[in-house]
Nucleic acid binder design. Sequence first.
DNA 1: ACCTATCTATATTGGTCCGATATAGATCGG
DNA 2: CCGATCTATATCGGACCAATATAGATAGGT
Lengths: 176, 176
Amino acid sequence: MDVRTICLGILSRGDATGYEIKKLFGDDGYQHFVEASFGSIYPALSRLTQEGLVSVRSEIQEKRPDRKVYSITEDGRKAFLGSLMKPLPEDRHRSPFVFAMLFSHLIPHPRVVEMLDTYIEQSETKLAQLMEPRPQPLPEGERFVTGFGRAVYIAMVNYLHQYRAELKGDAAEAAE
Amino acid sequence: MDVRTICLGILSRGDATGYEIKKLFGDDGYQHFVEASFGSIYPALSRLTQEGLVSVRSEIQEKRPDRKVYSITEDGRKAFLGSLMKPLPEDRHRSPFVFAMLFSHLIPHPRVVEMLDTYIEQSETKLAQLMEPRPQPLPEGERFVTGFGRAVYIAMVNYLHQYRAELKGDAAEAAE
DNA sequence: ACCTATCTATATTGGTCCGATATAGATCGG
DNA sequence: CCGATCTATATCGGACCAATATAGATAGGT
C-alpha cells in the first residue's frame, strides 16, 4: 500500500501535520503493520494536495516553528474508499533476524544467544505495547487489529522463549 | 538487511544464478522473511563481483539461454559473517490488509467479508507450505525458522477463523 | 499451424521509498 | 553552557521494485 493511500487513511480519521502522521507510526501507533518516513510522507502530502485529495492550512505557532495542517477532501475520501474496494497488495515481512538464524551454525554460540535475547526483548516490548489497556468499547476495526497483533506477538514470544530454553539446555549439556 | 548481504548468505550455501536466487524467494523458500526482485538481485550480484566478494562463470546451455553461475569467495564469506556479528536491522512488517481493516466501518460488509476470506486463504496457503514435511533432522537454523514460522502462522490463522466466526454471527443477527 | 500460458535466463528503467541531512524553532537536566 | 530531546518542514542520494525488454524453450488447446 503506497504512502499516499496510507496518508489518506490517516487523514480520514482526523486532520494532521506531516510530523503528526510520522509520530503515528511510533510506539503506540500503526508501526506493527504500516510505516513511512519523512522522506516519503512530505512528498506524498504535496502530491495529494496537487491532486486535490487533501487541503492544507498553515498555523502560526509561538515558540515553535509554524505547522502545516492537512485535511482530507471529499474527493480524497472517495479515492481512499476506492482503494479499499480494490484487491489489496500482499503483506510484506522482512526479518533480518530470522534470515540470520538460518546461518546460526556459522555464528559463535554466544552471539546466537545474544541475537535471540535482543529479539526476545524487542518482541516483548512490542507485545507490552499491544497489551496496554485501551478505552472500551474499541471501534470494530481497532478491535480486530489489536486482537490480531496480540495473537501473533503472543505466539512469537512463546516460541522464542521455548526455543531459548532449549538453547539453555544445549549450553548446559555442552558445559558438562 | 540489504540485498547484497542476502545474496551472500544464499551463495554461502551453494552456487546459484540470479534466476535461481530469485526462485528461492518463491513458495517454499525464504519468502516469509526476506525477498528481492530481479531489479535488485542482478545489480547486487554485479556489485558483489566488482567488490571481489563473489566470482562468476558462464555456462553454455543447449536449448536454453546461457546462464551465469555465481560463487561466494573467501572474502565474501568473511564479509557475510561480519554482517551477522553486527547488530541486525529491525524487522519490517507491512500489512495493507490489517491497515484496511482499521477502516472496516467505512466498507460495505460483504467487501469486508471478502477481504477477510481472501486473507484467510492466503494465510492458510502459506501455513500449508510451512507444514509440509521436511527431511529430518533439519539443520539447527532451519529448525528454528520453520518452527517460528509455523507458530506465527498457526496463531494468525486461528485468530482469523475465530474473528470470521464472529462476523458470521453478526451477519446472521443482521439477517434476522 | 497458430496462439496462449508458462518456464528458463539476463538485464534495465522509471518511479517509489527511506535514512540521512539540512534548516529552524524550542525545553530540560547536568 | 552543553548535550539530549522535542517540534516542524523539507530535500537528497542511494536502495529497491514492478514492469519491461530481449531471447531461448515446452505444452496444451483450437
